[in-house]
């Protein structure tokens, strides 16, 4: 087992594998994109509507400041926190940054296993493993895997799932 990435106060050991280091770039790109989207409306108001500048200016400053802070801090924290592991019985993933999250999905309850690649992920050579169960609570997503690793994990999970009887509900 690797050394403890971040000591957690939860009584769970961290999952075995880290995500790829270049995922930091992925998170940074996403954070910058989000910041630009959030800053666009106040910027437009500021430029097009001079009467609104007394409040649009401070708002823009706050939004931009938070956006920059987010883009600087979040990727590094996430890289330290995000980890994953697939065993014969379950998928185990840890993630988050301000709100940390540990998720376990038993193989016997898995309904679908997918790997997805967005445009930025494709540029960076990354892949996301998506595991869904019968619950409506959302899939377990592991971002930032090397495509070969994600494929292999998905294949393994698919084989394991087929071997497990039952309708997974």
């Amino acid at each position: 087992m690797l050394t403890h990435a971040v000591p957690d106060g939860i009584g769970l050991r961290p999952p075995r594998h880290r995500v790829e280091r270049r995922t930091i770039a992925l998170w940074a790109v996403r954070a910058v994109g989000g910041a630009v989207a959030a800053a666009a409306p106040p910027t437009l108001v500021h430029l097009l509507w001079p009467d609104a500048r007394p409040w649009a200016g401070p708002l823009l400053a706050v939004v931009a400041g938070l956006g920059v802070l987010h883009a600087l801090v979040m990727p590094g924290v996430r890289y330290a926190v995000h980890r994953w592991e697939v065993t014969d019985a379950s998928v185990y993933a840890a993630g988050g940054w301000v709100v940390r999250e540990w998720r376990v999905a038993p193989v016997s309850r898995i309904q679908t296993v997918d790997t997805t690649r967005g445009p930025v992920e494709r540029l960076l050579g990354l892949s996301t493993l998506v595991v869904t169960t019968a619950s409506s609570s959302g899939a377990v997503r592991v971002r930032g895997l090397a495509p070969a690793v994600a494929e292999e994990a998905a294949e393994r999970l698919n084989t394991l799932t087929q071997r497990t009887p039952g309708d997974a509900t």
Binding site: I10, G96, R100, W102, R103, S135, V140
Partner: peptide
Amino acid sequence: DAVSGVRVRQSLLQRRLGLA
């Protein structure tokens, strides 16, 4: 036996307060 997954969450405030 109906549980099909578990999620443990802890925010910064929860971490300070020793909660999850």
